[in-house]
């Protein structure tokens, strides 16, 4: 009755249930935490060009060029159930053809233990700011929002917007691209 196999089975089953229970408690302990915090965003240079988008439909689409100042201290967000933050800056705007456009312009992976105090001056974007058409020229209301996706050790994958957005407008004329 008390063979090696039955003992090993009992130990493994008990260890598994303890692990499952601890994981669940870890998930519960961080379920109701408010992960919002403040961020300050500012745009320095905003120009718009009309360029053929060879990645997409090859038509002349609006391409925005902006540089931003970005400041946010995300280190208080980390706790024992935050493995990584996926931080992203996105632009949200309306055009004549689309009721909603969201374009991620910049992102950064911050793992636990890495420096989470973001402070960028006059930063270039990581991704191209292509519009789906010609809706950037003269657009008066483009909102930049910093947001983060919390990657836990085990639990919910929540998305949180920073407190503090920034709105800007693009000029009414295209900047002619130098060939």
């Amino acid at each position: 009755m008390h063979s090696f196999l039955s003992r090993a089975n009992a130990v493994a089953a008990y260890a598994l249930s303890v692990l499952a229970c601890l994981t669940f408690l870890c998930f519960l302990s961080t379920l109701f935490i408010d992960y919002r915090t403040e961020a300050s965003i500012n745009t320095i240079r905003t120009i718009v060009k009309s360029i053929s988008n060879y990645n997409s439909d090859r038509k002349a689409n609006d391409l925005g060029h902006i540089t931003v100042d970005l400041r946010a201290d995300l280190s208080p967000l980390f706790n024992w159930n935050v493995k990584q933050l996926f931080v992203y800056l996105y632009a949200e705007y309306e055009t004549s053809s689309n009721s909603l456009n969201q374009v991620i312009l910049w992102d950064k992976i911050i793992r636990r233990g890495e420096n989470a105090n973001l402070n960028f001056k006059n930063m270039n974007l990581k991704y191209y700011f292509w519009d789906d058409g010609n809706g950037l020229k003269g657009n008066k209301n483009i909102t930049l929002t910093l947001s983060w996706n919390i990657i836990p050790n085990a639990g919910c994958l929540s998305h949180v917007n920073a407190v503090g957005q920034h709105s800007f407008s693009f000029p009414d004329e295209y900047t002619i691209a130098k060939q």
Partner: peptide, 15 residues
């Protein structure tokens, strides 16, 4: 994978 860009038309269709 993660959604990088999103465009929603007036009639509600998204790409």
């Amino acid at each position: 994978h993660r959604v990088l860009k999103l465009h929603e038309k007036k009639n509600g269709t998204t790409k």
